[in-house]
Write a protein that binds this DNA or RNA. Structure first.
Lengths: 110, 110
DNA sequence: TTTGTTTATCGTAATATTGCAATATACAAA
DNA sequence: TTTGTATATTGCAATATTACGATAAACAAA
């Protein structure tokens, strides 16, 4: 029915999937990479950097902001976005633990 | 229009998003965790482990297999699935590089 | 061959995501 | 106040994802 049955999974399993969903669109990956590259804040030139329309970029920014990975700061008419380094660090811990579960490798029947 | 404009992004940006999409559903996260936990192969008991219907699990397995993260081996009437450790390792490299881009942290206006 | 077991596929319904034109909002400058 | 600029929101269309019943396919055992 198109609905994820979140209640049958653990909080961690849901958290991993929510974080991953944020990275599951190349525009959001590109936004994050650009924010890291610029290092300081960036305003509306994401629209020029990426070839998508302004409302589309705004929507992607909203999702990243809602998840807490970026912060927005109003400066006059423009809005300055930058990475939320604290949130990024905690997110990285969660994802790294998930990615690093492949240490033993005992049996392999395939 | 619901279509990701993949052609305007780099191969790496698209690769990160494709990998992340595989992890963007808690059922697939759970399947992978279970395969790691069991370590050796597993057959149809994923349906019992997770509370989803058999066709749904089969569909999630198909996506993970298509991406190459798991391998399937037919054994009589059942199919034995297990982690593709080589593919997992290369995937981890790509994702780790993306997650580890937050080293400097010079300016922060937000 | 028939029967039971396991997994895959098909078809379809419900919902989510993506994209953008149009418009609204907020504010600086004239 | 008016005008221009930057960003957010609304509304809608196109497409993708998720879920599962029904069914098919593959095979082992009787």
């Amino acid at each position: 029915m198109g609905v994820s049955k979140t209640e049958m999974f653990t909080d961690l399993q849901n958290e991993i999937s929510i974080i991953s969903k944020a990275f599951s669109h190349p525009a959001r990956v590109t936004i994050l990479q650009y924010l890291f590259k610029i290092d300081s804040c960036v305003c509306g030139d994401l629209v020029n950097e990426i070839g998508l329309a302004q409302p589309t970029i705004s929507q992607h920014l909203k999702e990243l902001k809602h998840l807490g990975l970026i912060k927005g700061n109003v400066e006059g008419t423009s809005v300055c976005y930058c990475i939320n380094h604290e949130k990024w660090a905690t997110m990285k811990t969660v994802m790294s633990e998930f990615l690093d579960q492949d240490i033993p490798k005992k049996n392999d029947c395939c």
